[in-house]
Design a protein around this nucleic acid. Structure first.
Length: 318
DNA sequence: TCACGAATAT
DNA sequence: AATATTCGTG
């Protein structure tokens, strides 16, 4: 697993996906921002918002905790820091407008310096987009998220991009914490077909029964009509494609979860847990393989792809 | 022989 | 893109 190595000690930033926009922020930025809020009563709710966002990310990353142990740790630390800070402001009344200086944890370290210089221009954008994500994000509503994103991209391309200066990494970071893709095979069409042919307690293995016996007649008889059989007599006919209906896939995922993730689960265990009649180890194995690949890809997104792992986002450590 | 994961084929 | 098959290993 190359991921742990890639994670390395260099990855110190995580993307904070608040709604459809990636906001490059460091924990220090957040603390600074909150320290500048005059309304004390809102400080902790702001912090809670960040905590909530990060917790949501953590839930997503959790699926890859094996590949991204460091990532998890960073998130934990960040959440803890913000929670503590939030606690400090809990219950305080809105006080006189006394600017309070909060010593920032990572402020004295060199790591953040270069970045901070650009942060002020970024802050404006980030402020202007607050409205977008102060409302809960409904991840299932992919369309609106996507259209939001593309609208911004259009604006970017059409010259209003001064507004987006300094946010290039928004573009580049391409979805590190995007909501997971909808599981394949959930189209209405498929659901219809599935429910139509649903048997076996809602599960549909969807293997057409026809043609299963094609080769059954006298294997020793080499027929000219059956050139493929002649050319490769000992190769078995290709199996019917297993159709992984949504229901079937759900069972699969449940089994995976029960077994502790795609990394630890073994095809046989999964098949046994799924308790689906006629499902073979190989089929599960095959399915598991794409699952693992997907999780690797997903995990890879959580690691900075940019050189030096500066993916822009929340600096949660160092 | 079997189960497995990775690579490759369809 | 999704599934099946092959291949090398333990």
């Amino acid at each position: 697993m190359g991921f742990e190595k890639k994670m390395g000690e260099n990855s110190r930033q995580l993307n904070l996906d608040v709604g459809s926009i990636f906001v490059p922020k460091t924990i220090s930025d957040i603390l600074t921002e909150v320290s500048m809020m005059h309304d004390f009563s809102k400080k902790s709710s702001k912090l809670d918002f960040y905590v909530h966002s990060l917790e949501e990310e953590m839930r997503k990353v959790d699926a890859f905790k094996r590949e991204l142990p460091h990532c998890m740790q960073l998130l934990r630390d960040a959440i803890e820091t913000l929670k503590k800070e939030s606690l400090r402001w809990k219950g305080r009344e809105m006080g006189p407008v006394m600017e309070e200086f909060i010593p920032l944890k990572g402020d004295s370290e060199g790591g953040g310096r270069a970045k901070l210089s650009t942060d002020f221009s970024e802050k404006k954008n980030w402020m202007s987009s607050v409205q977008l994500w102060s409302t809960p994000v409904h991840y299932e509503n992919q369309d609106s998220v996507l259209s939001l994103r593309s609208r911004h991209q259009e604006e970017e391309g059409s010259g209003i991009d001064s507004q987006f200066q300094g946010c290039n990494n928004i573009k580049n970071s391409g979805g590190a914490f995007l909501p997971f893709k909808k599981a394949p095979g959930l189209s209405i069409k498929e659901q219809k077909r599935d429910s139509a042919s649903a048997v076996n307690g809602g599960l549909s293995l969807s293997i057409p029964v026809a043609e299963l016996e094609l080769e059954s007649e006298s294997p020793d008889l080499i027929s000219v009509k059956e050139p493929s059989a002649f050319l490769r007599p000992q190769l078995q006919q290709r199996k019917q494609r297993r159709c992984w209906s949504p229901e079937l896939h759900k069972r699969f995922v449940d089994a995976l979860q029960h077994l502790g993730g795609a990394q630890t689960a073994t095809p046989k265990q999964i098949r046994e847990l799924m308790k689906v009649d006629g499902l073979t180890n190989d089929e599960v194995k095959s399915h598991l393989q794409v699952e693992i690949q997907a999780s690797h890809q997903e995990a890879a997104k959580h690691i900075g792809r940019d050189e030096g792992f500066l993916v822009g986002g929340t600096r949660v450590a160092e």
